[in-house]
Amino acid sequence: MKAIRILRRSIRDSFKSIFRNFSLSMASIICTTITLILVAISLFLSYNVRQITTTLEHELTVVAYFKRDVTEEQKIRIENDLKTMENVDEYRIKTKEEWKAEMGKEQEILETTLDYLQDNPLLDSLIVKVKDVNNLKGVAEKLRKYDFVENAEYGEGMVENIIGIFDVISVGTIAIVIALVVVTAFLISNTIKLTIFSRKTQIEIKRLVGASNVAIKLPFVFEGFFLGIFGSIVPVLLSIYGYTILYNTTGGYLSTKIMTLVEPFPFVFIVSGFLVIVGSVVGMIGSWLSVRKHLKI
């Protein structure tokens, strides 16, 4: 009962002091709001960049061209080998007729040229998609070892560059999110420190009248929690409505369909949840640590 009373009074006191120290509370809330908006923006950027890079990476393939005299048995053999080969996601045989049709569709001149030649000069091929694009080269090398394979290509050089850029972008956006969360923690806890410093006497008196450290800290911890929650309201609303509107306006992709955006639901709710947790937890921890400094009297 005693613990419940202390808890109830702590919640009551936390609300009282939020309103009694209105200007400082507003400063905390605004500071939290601004930093959480930045966190939200970087989260949206990070996830979308990752989504786009993943889609693009999935489009990267190894193309192995069979020699002209390849037999059906050899094709079956390589297909069977691919089933057990490491890092292979999916594969399909693309015949020289398919290539011809595709090329013909792209450029009329190619169609006429190819039609002019009696024999199709193109080669049957095997298109392989891999699980990890970093090891595209490994798969290509394995395919080259078959004596009935003319060559295996994967866009050497360019692919490595693209993968390198994707990796930098991916790590960069994660680093930005982490840095912003740290900055948020620092800003929120500093503002809370100010509000607590202004109530040093209150803490001192509580200590003198025999309140336990936990009983002293609790109202401040709740205050930090509520300030964090209040501060996350605007970022959450902006995330939910802002991102949904952006998604609907762009039709869900940027410039080409390969660059698709992450679908808003449940994505916006996950981001919102994260923002509320960051705001409230940082608020609580910041308060706890700030009060601790004043408990040495």
């Binding site: 009373r5 008196i205 009248v209 002293i216």
Partner: peptide, 10 residues
């Protein structure tokens, strides 16, 4: 009352 409230008295 502040003193007693902080001690958790009803």
């Amino acid at each position: 009352a502040f003193a007693l409230e902080n001690l958790g008295l009803p």
